[in-house]
Nucleic acid binder design. Structure first.
Length: 259
DNA sequence: ATGTCGATCGCTGATCGA
């Protein structure tokens, strides 16, 4: 079973890329972020024709998340939930569903803009709410994957140049990431020997992709119960090389589970 | 710190968020 996280930065613009990529990779579950569309304009029909069921939580212009499940292998998408329970938020950043026996949490974590800003405070509040809720969710669903654009680079090796106290790498953000790990979650990417300087996001500006100036901010955390089932975790840079790419590359984890 | 990109409003570009 292959589970993916991919911030597509507008599903409308990226749908051709996504459909080509799904056809080529045949992955089972996809967590999408920044779909930037409401459910009423979500391309359910196109995805269904490509062999995928979908659930989405979207809004105009900003944010928006979705989970895709390959019909042939996953069966029905069940127990769908939108947003973090008890956390009032008009921003659509979380969707959760049970797919093929795995509880899949798809999150578009707040960017935070700048350390100390109002948006940064919101990011930290959001992270606390997510962590508190996830603790309960793990008790109910031990087989859980948290995939998303975390907007946090957990360690210095996840960053091109050594930044400190900047957004994405600041101490409070990294502490929040470690709080998620402390729930019993494991960063699937770090279970394996990986190439150096491999990132999941590159700024559109400054020729960042060509210079490989990036951040590893898209992650797939797996729960304790799934840890030993992880077979691989890779970042696929290929879609970032296409015309009109998303600024993020998809991250893929392969689990050995019965579907 | 920002040379790009995407969406919106609503006009043919400015503004915002990332």
């Amino acid at each position: 079973m292959k589970i993916v996280t991919w911030n597509v930065n507008s599903l409308k613009v990226r749908l051709p890329h996504l459909l080509d990529w799904l056809a080529a990779t045949q992955v089972d579950v996809v967590c999408l972020q920044e779909i930037k569309c409401e459910e009423k304009s979500f391309p359910f029909a196109e995805l269904e024709a490509a062999g995928y069921q979908a659930v989405a939580s979207g809004q105009k212009t900003y944010n928006g998340v979705a989970i895709l499940a390959r019909s042939e292998t996953c069966g029905e998408i069940r127990e769908v939930q939108r947003n973090i329970p008890g956390f009032e938020d008009e921003q659509r950043r979380v969707i959760v569903a049970t797919v093929g026996g795995v509880r899949v949490v798809c999150g578009y974590f707040p960017n935070g803009q700048a350390v100390g800003s109002e948006k940064f405070e919101y990011k930290l509040r959001w992270l606390t709410a997510l962590t508190d809720w996830l603790r309960e969710e793990l008790a109910l669903h031990p087989q859980l994957v948290l995939g998303g654009d975390y907007n946090i680079a957990p360690e210095d090796r996840d960053v091109t140049t050594e930044w400190h106290d900047e957004i994405h790498v600041s101490v409070p953000e990294r502490e929040a990431f470690r709080a998620l790990i402390a729930l019993g979650m494991t960063d699937a990417f770090r279970l394996f020997e990986q190439p150096e300087k491999l990132y999941s996001w590159w700024d559109y500006r400054m020729m960042a992709f060509r210079r490989n100036v990036g951040l590893r901010i898209d992650h797939l955390l797996v729960s304790t119960a799934l840890r030993d089932a992880v077979r691989s975790c890779v970042i696929d840079k290929a879609p970032r090389k296409l015309e009109r790419p998303s600024d993020h590359a998809p991250v893929i984890v392969e689990l050995e589970t019965v579907l």
